[in-house]
Design a protein around this nucleic acid. Structure first.
Lengths: 117, 117
DNA sequence: GAAACATTTCGTATATTTGCGAAACATCAA
DNA sequence: TTGATGTTTCGCAAATATACGAAATGTTTC
């Protein structure tokens, strides 16, 4: 009985969502889409994001793969918008993770330690 | 005037924090530390996490570098705990990001599209 | 059908992340 | 001082992420 765990579904999901949020381009896209409650064309985004078209497309693909956005074909454009259902799920998941915290604060002294220097 | 932005401080911070949360080992550690409101020894963690000692140490290092935990030397052990101040900041940052969302939901039709297949 | 357009996929190069074991480091106990 | 213990750093290998331009895809318009 080694005691080694497998990670729970929850832990793995949090890591997966966080990974999708771990690049400025993707954060920017999500922020824009979620704030404006509307959709965006890839062409609009490439105007304002300092990255090439094909790179942007890959980031959109990752967000889509993560389930956080969805694309609607509207020829000759493709409109992207937040996937509300999954966005709400992600929100709840991270919210719970961040807020289930005992807010008492004791016994942790600022280290000044050399560890991990 | 190309219109290309630099990313705001906020966007970059969100990406940076998210990156720290983007691995199950690190999520597990943070979850444990934040829930139990106490400290943990690296040796305790290595018992339950399916990863070697040196690898665990690197993950702790990353979390420390990201400012989310801190280590207190307590010979011959090293006690790790949440860095409450930065944890609160991270919480607020992600919370705002996740919740400044217009919750109306219109014009986004489930795609069925082949894009990014 | 051909040209024009928005976007994605492919191929490739580079950088970063993840993982491990061995060795190093620091502290305590004898 | 020597050995035991807990932890980190080093050196390396393998996997993954990021970025770009060129070529391919799909659609509309002429």
């Amino acid at each position: 009985m080694s005691g080694k765990l497998e990670f729970t579904q929850e832990v793995q999901e949090i890591a997966r969502i966080s990974k999708a949020l771990s690049h400025p381009v993707r954060v920017y896209i999500l922020q824009k889409l979620s704030k404006m409650n509307s959709c965006c064309y890839s062409g609009d985004l490439v105007e304002e994001i300092p990255v090439g078209r094909s790179t942007l497309s890959q980031h959109l693909k990752e967000l889509k793969y993560a389930g956080l956005i969805q694309g609607e074909i509207n020829p000759p454009f493709i409109k992207y918008c937040i996937n509300r259902e999954n966005w709400e799920k992600a929100k709840k998941l991270l919210d719970d993770f961040l807020n289930y915290t005992n807010s008492l604060n004791f016994s942790c002294i600022e280290p000044e330690s050399l560890i991990h220097k």
